[in-house]
Design a protein around this nucleic acid. Structure first.
Lengths: 174, 174
DNA sequence: CCGAAGTTTCAGTAAATACTGAAAATATGA
DNA sequence: TCATATTTTCAGTATTTACTGAAACTTCGG
């Protein structure tokens, strides 16, 4: 009975899109962007802007902006179909690739600016010759060292081949 | 010339607080909470609500809410001074402890709910007997497996002693 | 070069989130 | 117990962020 299965799938997919969208919020990603990503991750075929608008009930501007943002992240890519004038989009479905993309983007947007602030404060407080000044400098120094270190580690991990990362992680969990 | 040093320190500290607050935004943490945390991280003495209000120019309600939130995260703790009726607050200053607290909190708020959604979709799509249904189920399965795995790894790492983590990371960067 | 199809931009508006300030509740000690 | 210091709550407001819809722009076939 395929029509019942179709209905169940439609429902499950809609749930996934809606809930993944809600989650996006906690990830510093706006709802629509997360929803489009969810929609495309569970869509076997590449689809166009109008279908995204219709499936998610959003405006053209909104769909456009977020599709382009996803492309700029590298989480989806544009497809040109022969004989078709408009653009279609399909998602990267490999989980490790998704992870590395998100990790890199978050490092760029969250860690790198923090390092910048810390290094500047480190400079600004260099040579302040009071007990409080030295304590401040010391704290900045510790923070900068740790954040820089973490940034390198994250970079290294997200540059690994999946197999290697898996091996490493397995050792960690054993 | 200590008064010049004092001025420089005051400036550097204010910059740090302001900029760290701005960064908080990109971390899903509100500006005030990040600013209070920054203020307390660079303050040698525990300070009270009124001083926080004054230093950051914010209302009592705002200060109160965010101080309590920071306490609930474990990033700051309350101090009772003898002979004083009001509460004082001091920050956790150890960078590794800060990291593990933030990592755990983010796992709880970002990863665990995602796992919940994925497992539910996994159930809802079990046994849908169409090609599309199987593809959907397969994608959910891969996502759930990876996210669960990542969650365990994060948990394990943030439960480590700093020395061990450092050793591991050093091996990674070599 | 023209007209249709498709894409991009953006001013205005809606929704979500954070903050204020004052009132209510609670704790302290005389 | 009462007066006072302190903490907590929350309705109203301000700020920030996201979305709409339509106009401007671009692309392409004829």
């Amino acid at each position: 009975m395929s029509s019942a299965d179709d209905a169940k799938l439609k429902q499950a997919r809609e749930d996934f899109v809606a809930q993944w969208g809600a989650l996006g919020t906690h990830w510093g990603i706006n709802r629509t962007m997360a929803q489009i990503h969810a929609l495309l991750m569970t869509e076997p075929e590449a689809i166009g802007t109008d279908e995204v608008m219709e499936r998610l009930q959003i405006s053209r501007g909104n769909a456009h902006t977020n599709l382009k943002e996803l492309v700029s992240w590298g989480l989806i890519r544009t497809i040109v179909k022969k004989g078709e004038r408009r653009e279609f989009f399909e998602a990267e479905k490999d989980v490790w690739k998704i992870f590395t993309i998100v990790a890199r983007e978050r490092r760029r947007r969250e860690i790198d600016p923090a390092l910048g602030v810390l290094h500047q404060c480190l400079d600004d407080s260099r040579g302040i010759d009071t007990p409080e000044g030295r304590a401040f400098h010391e704290q900045m120094s510790k923070l900068a060292e740790f954040v820089g270190f973490a940034s390198n580690v994250a970079d290294r991990v997200s540059g690994m081949k999946y197999g290697i990362a898996l091996q490493l992680a397995a050792r960690l969990l054993s």
